[in-house]
Every structure is written in structure tokens, then in C-alpha cells.
Design a protein around this nucleic acid. Sequence first.
DNA 1: TTGACAGACGCAAGCCGTTCGCAATAACCT
DNA 2: AGGTTATTGCGAACGGCTTGCGTCTGTCAA
Lengths: 152, 152
Amino acid sequence: MAPPASASHEHEREHRLEEILGLLREDGGRVTPARRAVVAHLLDAKDHVSAEDIAASVQESLPDVSVSTVYRTLEALERLDVVEHIHLGHGPSQYHLADRRHVHLMCRDCAQVIELPDDYLDRLAARLARQHGFVLEPSHFALLGRCADCAG
Amino acid sequence: MAPPASASHEHEREHRLEEILGLLREDGGRVTPARRAVVAHLLDAKDHVSAEDIAASVQESLPDVSVSTVYRTLEALERLDVVEHIHLGHGPSQYHLADRRHVHLMCRDCAQVIELPDDYLDRLAARLARQHGFVLEPSHFALLGRCADCAG
DNA sequence: TTGACAGACGCAAGCCGTTCGCAATAACCT
DNA sequence: AGGTTATTGCGAACGGCTTGCGTCTGTCAA
């Protein structure tokens, strides 16, 4: 579960963790074991995870943290712009740290998710801004379609 | 509820209705009053509607058509490629006739939906196909962001 | 025209993801 | 150490959608 980390990576992760928890405190919030575990899981996750994923992982060490606590923690973190969620069409929302922003492609057949750099939609975003004054949030939804394998 | 229609529009609508019902029959399906009413509502709707919208409208004339019938009818029509649905992030799926395909922008703040021509994402689709073999389905999801009003 | 065979129906229960109300707990500040 | 108040766990409830089941009814062949 914990990533194989060199001493410096471990240190770095610890730093980020405390930094985020500090933001919660600055905001008048409190740092609890549950919140610490949620943030830790987000730091360890390679990419996006569902609230249920987080709950399951947190419950390994803190068995009676409830899903509602996870949702409430994620909500607090989103208010602080530390976390964002993305809609993948069908299926639950996926959460990730705001600084791990990506554009997502999702296959409607095999449900595979492909990540692209977060500037992949810059041209489209510019066009939407120019033509419609619309400010695109490219990492808040997935582009649906069929992946190379499933399209045949 | 029924659109103000000239005689020819009325005739045209009737034709489309029977045409679609014919497809159901050809497929080994049956044409029931409930199905007729669902298709009629889709023909009358200006744009996309939720299953609940359809149910409410159908129930005005056929009070005990249940939501499950609406969902099952929409499922049958999607199998025949007559209907498609689109995911708008939060909120229920929206259904529309397959020949009224659009790209959708949705404002995360005011929930307003802006429709763009269905070829609006052609360049993006071409790029995705070329670089990733991904076949984009541009009308199966909404582009989320903030509309001109809400972006300020 | 009728009959019988699916297919479609209504209903109610159930699913999933998410939110909420509440009383009890425990972080934080002094 | 103590008071305040944010956060918690729990359970109930939500919205959107699906399913199982027994009944009904289009459809098509006789």
C-alpha cells in the first residue's frame, strides 16, 4: 500500500501531508486521524480514486471511519482547492490532488481511463473562451468515446 | 405541451413517429401506448430531457406509466440508435433523438447548458484519433466549466 | 377472428453513490 | 486542565436507475 520510497521521497511526502493539514487548520478546521489518513491516501494514490476507494484504504488502519467522513473531508479539501473531482460518465466521481490535474479519456466499452497532459485541451479552451466566453475546466469531466482496442 | 404546428409540420411529426415505431416493430419489439407517448415526447422536446421529464409528460395522458417503463423504452430506442443520452456531470442523464446531436457546454455554477453544433469538436476528435486511436463521442458528455456570466 | 406466444407492463423492492440530522466525541485555544 | 465547537459515527434518507415477478396485451399465424 505504502509506496516504496527513498528516504527523501518519504520526507517529501511527509512535508506535503503536513502542508495540506496546515491549510485545514488555517481555515479554522481541525486535523483528525481520519483526515490525516484521507490526505495520506490521496498522496499515495498514483492517480484518481473514488470516495469508496479512499474509505476502504483508510479503514485498513482506522476501521470505523465512515464514508460520510470521507465525503466531508473531501468536501473540505475541495473548498481549499487542494482536491478536485472529476465525472467519468457512469460510475462514481474520482478525486485527486489539484496539482495532479489531467485530461481524461474514458472508453465507454472497457471503462479504461487514459490520462493526457492537462494542457491537452488548451486550443479548445481558447476557442471556447473567444467564441462563447466560456471558461473550460478541462479536468472536471472525461472525454468519452472508444479506445483503440474497443473501436477495432 | 404540443407544439404549435402547421398542418405540414404535424404531418411530418406523425411520419417520424410512425417511422420510429416501425423500427421497434422490425426489431421484434411491440408498439404500446406508453412507447408511443415516450417517442412523441422526444419528438416534441426542443432539446434534451431527463427520464423523469419524459415520465412526467407521459403521465399526463397515461397516468400509470411507470418510470421503469420509460427507462426500458429509452434503452430499446438506444439499442436501435434512435436515441442517445448524455452525461451532464452532476444530475441525471439527458436523452435526445440521435439526429439532434449537439456538443454541450455546462456551467458548473448556474447549471445552464449551451448547445454547439455537433461538429464543434471535430479537430479535437481528429487529434485524438491520430495520436491515441481514440474515437471520441462528442455528444455523449458535456464540457464543464463556467459560462460567461458566471466567470465574471 | 381467434388464440397463443412472447414481449412489455406496473409495481415494489433494491441498488449505488451521496447527503443529512443527530447526539457524542475530541481537537484546539487559553 | 477546561471550554468551545468542529468533527465524528451512525443510520436514515436521498436521487437516479435497475430488477424480479406476476399479469397483461400486441402481434402474427391459423
